[in-house]
């Protein structure tokens, strides 16, 4: 999707959003609350109509070809609402058949793996169990693309682990997954590529390695003599000197000059921590605040 724009009333929810997901990859879609993740997914499903921009989904137009595309994809909404009087099993079968059929064996194994009781009525399920119903309904179908909107919210850690196993199996089958999430460890563990969205724009997109490269590494070192002017080196920030010990946060381009300068001063010990996704995430989110 290129240049996607969506207004709700006078609020601009998506502002020239660009997003591309390659076939066969697990793509993480990260962003703070209200950034436009769910809106993007609902546009991809043809539930909402974009005001401007062009997009292709599995070779079709999400709005015009919605029905044909929906045969080839499955969706887990962020807020799962079940019909209060239908049992979980009935909902799974209904949604599966409406999509064009589900695989009974896969359905049975998923229900077992997620420890779901399919005989309960929709109103009797807890949040986590509602989530499981939606997950089983989506994962039991043999589809090319999975659109998952915070799929593990409400699941306990064991079930989360089960979900990760399952997504890795899906990846092995060559299927594509677009996973919107808040849980960074989950994205880090599962996703081949990540897009970060803020205020309706994708602000960064790439593989985990590429994103790390963009972020600063934390370097701390013990030096025999601390050279002057470390803080003026390009790409070196937040230099703190405590006696013989310095810490700094360093961009990729600042790494070589810093190392050279420190070597000149005589390095006795050095540690360098690669940026975690948390730091990346925080860095982009905090930009939102003035």
């Amino acid at each position: 999707m290129v240049g996607l724009v969506k207004h709700f009333g006078r609020t601009k929810v998506l502002n020239e959003l660009n997003l591309s997901v390659a076939q066969g990859e697990v793509h993480g879609f990260l962003g703070p609350n209200g950034a436009g993740k769910t809106t993007t997914l609902r546009i991809l499903l043809g539930l909402l109509r974009a005001d401007a921009g062009t997009m292709r989904l599995l070779g079709g137009d999400p709005w015009l070809d919605a029905v044909d595309l929906h045969r080839r994809l499955a969706y887990v909404p962020g807020d799962v609402a079940l019909w209060p009087t239908l049992t979980g099993g009935e909902v799974i079968d209904l949604l599966g058949r409406l999509r064009g059929g589900l695989e009974p064996q896969r359905r049975a194994s998923l229900i077992e793996r997620f420890e779901l009781d399919p005989t309960k009525k929709g109103r009797a399920y807890s949040k986590g169990n509602r989530q499981k119903v939606a997950l089983v309904a989506a994962l039991a179908s043999d589809v090319e693309l999975l659109l998952l909107d915070e799929p593990t919210s409400g699941l306990d850690p064991l079930m989360e682990e089960e979900f990760r196993h399952y997504i890795n199996e899906v990846r092995g089958d060559g299927r594509t997954v677009l996973l919107s999430s808040h849980i960074l460890s989950e994205v880090e563990a599962l996703c081949d590529r990540v897009s970060i969205i803020r205020d309706g724009e994708v602000v960064e997109s790439g593989t985990m390695a590429q994103l790390r490269h963009l972020a600063r590494t934390t370097v701390s070192a013990d030096l025999t003599t601390v050279p002057e002017g470390l803080a003026d080196l390009p790409g070196v920030h937040d230099v703190v000197v405590q006696g013989q010990r310095i810490t700094a946060s360093v961009e990729a381009r600042g790494m070589a000059p810093l190392m050279a300068a420190m070597s000149a001063g005589g390095v006795t010990a050095v540690t360098s921590a690669p940026p975690t996704l948390e730091e990346l995430f925080l860095r982009y989110y905090q930009k939102a605040q003035p």
């Binding site: 239908l86 009935e90 079968d93 409406l98 005989t119 009797a124």
Partner: peptide
């Protein structure tokens, strides 16, 4: 609430609508 069937027979929007409106 009593437990219901583990396997559903509904397979169409009209079936669903009927199920919801029947009572």
């Amino acid at each position: 609430d009593q437990p219901g069937p583990a396997v559903g027979r509904l397979s169409s929007p009209i079936g669903l609508a009927w199920r919801l409106q029947r009572p």
